[in-house]
Design a protein around this nucleic acid. Structure first.
Length: 435
RNA sequence: GGAGAGGUGCCAGAGCGGCCGAAUGGGGCGCCCUGCUAAGGCGUUGUCCGGGUAAACCGGACCGUGGGUUCAAAUCCCACCCUCUCCGCCA
């Protein structure tokens, strides 16, 4: 959520920055929010002074009662009753306007960082690094989509996954399943030097999913368990961000760094029928997320650190990759600035987004009410949050199957993964799981 | 799932419907005393919103959450949430 006070004090600057998102509807929302805010302040002033009168009369009533002046007390009470009536009106007006304002603000996206490049959509995102580790030429045996290699080797069994759970679910088997787990272990180990490992709940409250920005706008993208009013997390970002919701942290404790390996659940409502083969788009997948809570000053440096960490893991796997900066028009709802790391998959001839490294400024923290306090200082400030996929399993798994496919149809396991795979160096038909 | 107890400030813990934003103790911070330490003395110690150019200051809100009663609610009533104990069930 953006700061209403900023909209109040510098509306033109806010609107100019927001216009870069290239979505005119946002500017209308901002106008609407401004009008509601002005109205809300008028009501607040009136309501508070009305209440002040009631409070003061109540004290006078007590004084009169003590002085045995019942007639005087009765008169004061009568007056206060009248004020009470107008308070009821003011209070309901206040509730109405403030919840209307909140509803609008929840839909308003974050303000893009000044350095975010201009652009209207994904086409305008610029490659800021790479491609790296890209061979001059791919062999024909690398030009095989992972779903073909996966089923030939018996490590991807989507037919049965679909039988069990319906479309867009996948299942890895044998060394395929082992490799999925190995990737997570690798990502955790590579970040354990600075990030505390957390195993958070996978089901969360509506308020938790609202804090990170998925609700109310993107309700269709999340699985919900209506009977219990719970939601399946689309990413560990959701519970990790809310870890400190409603808390006031000490400035000297920051930055806080957390990582978590969880399943992620996505309805992919807008993408039905897209990327249906293989593992590129699925309802459930595993991911290791890294997340930081920082002061505003620490955030830019953290953004660089997270990007470096994500990149280093992909580099260690030996995969071809590049880094893109997301332009203003393609920036996610909650994002202040972000970079995508993409891996090239020769079999399906696509650059696959394997991580989005994002800085949310105070947008999520304001929703989640995460603050920090400088020791000795009065008051508190809203914290900043940042996060990244340290490693999202399916697409990296797919990219390995395609990049590391050998002439004989087997897949060479990247060296950094081998220690997590009981020493296996290659996945071949001879290591095939029984049907 | 059943029965009972409870949720108050950084912590512990008190709180007849008005004099309670809240006693008291501990902790933290500041000062004093002391050669150092210990002990002691005095003071101070929440968050949010609005007004004010601003420090001062003024008004409002907050005692699990949401409603209600009342001139007035931490205190009374209702619902919900959470925690603890016991029973049941169980990976």
């Amino acid at each position: 959520m953006i700061d209403v006070r900023l909209l109040r004090s510098e509306p033109d600057a806010v609107k100019a920055a927001m216009a870069r998102r290239a979505k005119p509807a946002i500017l209308e929302e901002l106008d609407h929010a401004q009008r509601l805010d002005a109205r809300l302040r008028d009501i607040t002033v009136e309501r508070d002074s009305n209440r002040a009168q009631i409070n003061s009369i109540s004290k006078d009533v007590a004084t009169a009662r003590r002085a045995k002046d019942d007639a005087g007390a009765e008169k004061l009470m009568q007056h206060s009753r009248e004020l009470g009536e107008s308070e009821k009106v003011l209070a309901s007006e206040f509730d109405q306007v403030s919840s209307a304002l909140r509803d609008v603000l929840l839909l308003v996206p974050n303000i893009p960082h000044a350095q975010v490049s201009a652009g209207n959509n994904a086409e305008d995102n610029k490659v800021v690094k790479g491609p790296l580790q890209m061979p001059a030429k791919f062999a024909d045996y690398q030009r095989v989509p992972h779903w073909e290699t996966g089923s030939a080797l018996g490590i991807l069994d989507n037919e049965r996954a679909t039988k069990i759970s319906g479309s867009m679910f996948t299942m890895q088997r044998g060394l395929g399943a082992t490799m999925a787990r190995a990737l997570c272990q690798l990502a955790l180990d590579r970040n354990a030097d600075a990030f505390e490992e957390v195993r958070p709940p996978s089901l969360v409250l509506t308020s938790t999913l609202t804090a990170t920005g998925q609700l109310p706008k993107f309700a269709d993208d999340a699985f919900s368990i209506e009977r219990d009013d719970l939601w399946c997390i689309p990413t560990a970002e959701v519970p990790l961000t809310s870890l400190h919701a409603g808390e006031i942290l000490k400035a000297e404790e920051l930055p806080l760094r957390y990582m978590a390996h969880t399943s992620c659940f996505r309805r992919e409502a807008g993408s039905a029928g897209r990327d249906t083969r293989g593992m590129l788009r699925t309802h459930e997948f595993d991911k290791v997320e890294i997340l930081a809570v920082t002061t505003p000053q620490q955030a830019p440096e953290m953004l660089v650190e997270l990007t470096n960490r994500v990149e280093a893991t992909i580099a260690a796997l030996g995969l071809p990759y590049r880094v893109l900066e997301i332009c203003a028009g393609d920036l996610g709802q909650s994002h202040h600035r972000s970079f995508d790391v993409e891996v090239y998959a020769p079999g399906c001839d696509q650059w696959l987004e394997v991580s989005s490294v994002s800085w949310f400024s105070d947008y999520q923290a304001r929703r989640a009410d995460i603050r920090f306090k400088q020791s000795g200082a009065k008051g508190s400030e809203i914290a900043h949050t940042l996060n990244a996929s340290a490693l999202a399993v399916p697409r990296v798994w797919a990219a390995i199957l395609e990049n590391c496919r050998q002439a004989d149809g087997s897949v060479a396991i990247p060296e950094v993964l081998q220690p997590y795979m009981r020493g296996a160096k290659v996945i071949s038909t001879s290591s095939r799981a029984k049907p």
